[in-house]
Nucleic acid binder design. Structure first.
Lengths: 204, 204
DNA sequence: TAAAAGTTTGCAGAGGCTGCAAGTTCGGCC
DNA sequence: GGCCGAACTTGCAGCCTCTGCAAACTTTTA
């Protein structure tokens, strides 16, 4: 259970992230200093760095892993299920979590979109996860762990997820007002499964 | 033609990049300061920033575009050629250029591999290019420019290229000593074309 | 060769980030 | 309740990245 101390930490962390996002959205991340963020969260600047290694991290956040990981779930999917479908299945809980935190994620994606320096950092976080997926994929397929295909497959699926999220967050102009992230990921995975030479049918 | 001034610039730029790579390989990028790099290249630290916006950029470098771009070439490939094959064709010159600069690229990839903070930056550079590819791909397929599929396709191909380069640079342990980058890209594109559910045949 | 154009450099300064040591709060135990 | 140790916060000093500006300096051009 969480004691007062842990609750306060969570609270401080959330306050810092929220302040960072809010300020970054207002004026762009470059025009927000750590001092201002800490000020807004009512802690000292030094404390900011006790929570986040870099200013960017306060925007990106970190996956708060509780429960079985994507890898665990991926290994749990029956071996007969084709790779792409299996990965999708393993991802569903994460995706639903993101949908649940819809507001914060949309804000985050908006900030990332407006501060192009952040996108690569998001990708970097993803790359760490993908490295792990690669191991699980290799196991599934009975391929050597350090092999080529598993890593390629993991990286490609990660990319597809990210692309879907970008699209999800991008409710601009002529985009339908509200879309289901899971549906978008499904579409992207369809492309992965079928091969790039076969454009998706519906919509653009 | 290049006059003395331009030649000197090229020379200074190369000296900075080379010094940065050499020092970063020796002690890790974090333990190399801009001051040391400039010192080694025999210019002032201030001059370093006339050439590169950030320290990282001296490692990553920038595509020195001369001649037709990937996009130009992509649009020049006959419309009947399937997408994946077309992109591959458009990329061949770039890939050959990289093979030609083999030594510097291998060093660069080694440094990137040892300094994980650099990988996302490499990806970022790629993302800019991919954005442009997406436009060309859309044109090829007669899809709306801002659409979903073209960007997904561009991102996926970019990812595949990068994966191939990582593998190319990774001549470790049980890897065959010398591989052809073009061949590796071809393999990765094979996966893209066929769909992820069909693992590549030969090798792992 | 003199003016114009382009480059290098030093300097001052903002801001990110770190180690350290002192102060404060919290949790558990007698 | 009171006390101790662990965890957390904070200020401070300091290094480093990166920028704007203005003064040299070098190359090009007329």
């Amino acid at each position: 259970m969480l004691n007062r101390r842990d609750r306060k930490k969570l609270q401080t962390r959330a306050a810092l992230m929220s302040a960072a996002l809010r300020l970054a959205e207002e004026r762009g991340l470059d025009h927000v200093t750590v001092e201002e963020i800490s000020e807004a969260a009512d802690v000292s600047p030094r404390t900011f760095f006790n929570y986040f290694a870099t200013k960017d991290d306060a925007i990106i956040g970190e996956p708060v892993a509780d429960g079985p990981s994507v890898c665990d779930r991926l290994l749990a999917v029956p071996a007969e299920v084709p790779l792409v479908a299996a990965v999708l299945t393993a991802l569903v809980p994460e995706i639903e979590q993101i949908q649940a935190d819809r507001d914060i994620w949309l804000l985050r994606m908006r900030v990332i979109k407006d501060n192009s320096a952040l996108l690569p950092i998001l990708v970097a976080k993803g790359a760490i996860a993908e490295q792990e997926w690669a191991g699980a994929i290799a196991t599934r397929l009975g391929l050597p762990a350090g092999g080529y295909f598993p890593l390629l497959a993991a990286t490609l699926t990660g990319t597809a997820v990210r692309a879907a999220m970008m699209r999800w967050a991008d409710r601009s102009d002529d985009n339908p007002g509200d879309q289901n992230l899971l549906e978008l990921v499904r579409e992207a995975f369809g492309v992965l499964a079928e091969g790039l030479n076969t454009p998706i049918k519906k919509g653009d």
